[in-house]
Structures are given as C-alpha cells and as structure tokens.
Design a protein around this nucleic acid. Structure first.
Lengths: 143, 143, 143, 143
DNA sequence: GTGGTCTAGACCACG
DNA sequence: GTGGTCTAGACCACC
C-alpha cells in the first residue's frame, strides 16, 4: 500500500515514501515531502537529487510525474538546476526556524482537530491518540 | 473561503461546512462530515435530513452534487431513503463507541505525525501545536 | 422485508405481498400481482375488492398508492367501478388459457435466462435452481 | 429496443447490452451485467475496460452515465482505477465458484417462481417455459 | 490520452 | 412535495 525508497545523499539516508493509490496525487506527495525535508534542513543546500529516471524507476511511477514534482520544487526556489541535468538543493534553502516549520504543520493539525470534534472525541483523547501516532511513527522510522 | 450552513433538526443545530474550491471535492467533504456526525451519534437514527434542494441552495451548490453525497451515504448504510420523502439517518446507524470513532480519526493523525517528523519537529512541540489547534477549533465552534 | 396481506373474498383467501423498499415501485407491484391473479382466474368476475382505505392500512402504504394501482387496473379493463365506490373484478375478466398466461411469465424468464448465461451457469444448473425456487415457493404458500 | 456493443478485450469478445428506455436505469444495467461477467470469471483480473468515452459513444449514452456505472463497480471492489489510464478488472476479482454465482441468480428465479404461481401455472409448465427461454437465449448469443 | 467534478436544466417517477 | 436519471458541455487533474 506504500512504496518507500531510500535516497542516499552525502552519507545521509532519507526516505521518499508514496502511497500510489491515495487520493492525493503522486506528484503532490513528492513535492510536499521534499519541501518539508528541505525546510527542516535535512537536505543541505547543494545536495544532489537523484535523476528523474532513477527516482521514477525506484518509485515505479511515470517519469513525467517525477519530472513535474521536481519542476515545481524548482519553481518554488527549493531546487536549482545545475549544468548537465542534475538538480541540487538550492543554496538559499537553509533550515527554517522551528516556528516557520510549525506553520507548515498547521493545516494537517487543523484538519485533524476539526475531525476530532465532529467525531465527538474529547481533546484529551485526541491528544493521546496523536501521541501514540507520533510514537508509532518514530518506531517505524528507526526500524 | 468556507461556507457554513446551520441545519436545525429536532431542536438540535448542527453544521455543514464546505470549502468550495478545495482540492477535496465538495461531495466528498459532505460525505465525510456526515459520516463522522452520524458515527458520533450527533445525528440520531431517524433524524430527518434536509431535502436535496434545500441543502443545495443553502450551500450554493448544484443539487446533483448534494444528491451524489447522500446517495453514497445511503450505499454505506448510514442513510435510508423513504420514497417521496426526504432521507433519514438509518436505524442501524447507532453511535459507535469511542474506540471505533478513534479509528476514523487515525488517518488524519498519522498523516500529521509523518509530516511533523519530516519537518524535524519534536513530539513535544507537535503535541503542543495540536493542543492549540484543538482549542482554537473549540473557540470557533462556540462563537 | 416483505409485507403480506391476506385478502378474503368470497371464501377464497388470496394474498397481496409487497416489498416496501424494492426498486420496483409499490403501485406496480400491486398492479402486476393483481393482473396475474385475475388472468389466472383466481379472482372470479364480480369479486369485490377491499376498499382503498382498508388495503392501504393493511399494507401500511399511502392510500394514493393503492388508489393509483386500482385506477390502472380499471383502465386495463380488469376491474370495474360499481355504484358506491367499491371495485369489482370485471365481468369480461375471465380466466385466460394457460398459453396466454405463459406469455405473461415470459419477461421474467427471459431476464433470468440472460442472467444465467452472463453468470456462466449451465442450462442444467439453471433449471435445477429454478426447480428448487418453485418448490420453496410452494412450501412457503402452503405454510 | 436494445443496443448491444461488442467489446474486444484480449482476443475475447464479450457484450454489453442495454435497453435505453427500460424502467431499469442504464447505469444499473451496466453495473449488474459487468458484475455478473466478472464474478463468472469471463473478464479475468487485469482485463482492461474500454475507456469511458469509447463505451459511451458505442452505447450512444452520455459519458457521465458510463462513468457512474464504472465508479460504482470500483466502489464494489470489482474494478480498479489506474490514474491516467483506463480501468481494469480488479486483481482480487477472481472467478467465484458456481455456488456463489447461483446465489446471484436467485432473486430473478424467485421472482419468476412467484409469478408462475400467481399465474396458476404448474411447476412442470414453468420449467418447460424456462428451458425454452434458455435455449432461445443460447441461440441468440451464438448468432 | 485518461477519468473526475461540477453546473444547468429537463424530465420522470413516486407518494 | 420528494429524489432519480440523463444530457450537454465546460473545466480540471493526472499521467
């Protein structure tokens, strides 16, 4: 249900993980994940991205989909195109302060909060559920 | 950016709220909200839904859009159709226990948890942000 | 799932049986059943039908629905309106020969035959299934 | 009275056949037929469906009508959607055993059995009529 | 190329 | 009054 790909850049291993049949389009999953990684400083400026072909093959998606995602990230100023065709994380894409990153998390949290109330769950309960989701996620990433 | 409609049924006021140009289609917003309300028992079995035409006018959308949403809820067994009359919440749609409702909240929380980690935010910080999102939401609903 | 009503006319007991939420409209279920009963001679000419009110109450449906069904049967010449408001089976509605009645069964059989083939069932198997359906029905009627 | 369309998939020719002005809505005719074909294994998992536009043109109906039918089949888990490509028969839609397929034929047979009795036809006669309906159908399909 | 969504409006069927 | 169906056509999103 979920294809995860390890990307090794400069001795650091990060992950791309897509859910092929999610309602969220694949290119958007890629863009949003990369934006968060770069904003968090997990991919340093100058880091070289895998080629469109490699990434597409690894994720088993259409190269045009990958190309579109990278193009959007370039338009956002998060990636830069270097000579040849390889793309690198832009120089100006430095790690943002936590406050800015928190802002990027907001929409997901607001949606979850609205749903919790529609479901009649107490704030306490909702928070407990979120805590266990965070822990489950942490456990999954280390494994 | 967001159209909210008060629906008064049996002296209870609940809300339908849609975001017209969201990526999420309108009919799906309606289905998901109604599913949560019904599962939470906020709309008791037998509760009469507003007519398709009324709801469509109130939300300023096409009647077919509303009809599609209600049709899907019927297929799910959450609404019942009474020929010649408006639809009602199904008898078998009793309030689910909190554990089941929690399950419905899970996907949203998992997505938020994954994003939090991608953004490099600590669990503590993510929880604090969620707490304030819940409070903001509560404040918004009472007003 | 199925409301059955015994109608006692002239010492003969016949049945009206409707499935309230079937895709087939109620009035049509009534018309089709009555047509078959009359054509088969099970309700002799002159037999008095129950009043619209009684029938509607017994079947728990809207009187307009019953009225519409009886009206259609009258238009077909199978029922006649007598002084007062009671309706009776028409004098010219004599029992049809079996060949004519077979013709009325045809559409249902053709639909079943088409479905059997679409389901990849052999003719032998389909016939065996129909035989058991006939027997189950007979058993149900005598009980 | 009846539009039949040959669909050639993987060297196999199957049929879609609709009755445009039947009481049964077109989209439902399509859903029911496809469900039977798939359940019978006549359309193997992975079989590619014609595109919505092609099918709509062939049947001379609106694309949305076809789309609605295919959407319902997807919700049932019988078809799978591949983004940007046409839909295919779902992998998990394997040929059901004859006993299960017989179950799908049951409603039609029960209706026919009830009608036969209401018409006062003997079981023997009803069976004979069904046999000839099956043969007539077979003859029609081969021609 | 594919399907999805929404709109506008007509018409029907049911009760 | 209610919902259901279908059409025509526009526009979008994805691959």
């Amino acid at each position: 249900m979920c294809i995860t790909v390890s990307i090794h850049v400069n001795e650091i291993t990060t992950l791309f993980s897509i859910v092929p049949r999610s309602a969220e389009p694949i290119y958007r999953q890629l863009v949003d994940q990369a934006r968060r990684r770069i904003t968090a400083g997990q991919w340093a400026p100058g880091t070289e991205m895998p080629s469109v072909r490699d990434l597409a093959q690894a994720l088993a998606v259409n190269p045009m989909t990958v190309s579109k995602a990278l193009g959007l990230l370039e338009a956002e100023g998060l990636l830069e195109r270097r000579r040849g065709l390889s793309m690198v994380v832009a120089q100006r894409a430095t790690a943002a302060p936590a406050a800015d990153r928190a802002e990027l998390l907001r929409p997901a949290l607001e949606r979850a909060a609205a749903q919790a109330h529609e479901l009649g769950l107490s704030d306490t309960r909702a928070l407990a559920l979120f805590r266990s989701a965070l822990q489950a996620r942490a456990h999954k990433e280390t494994s």
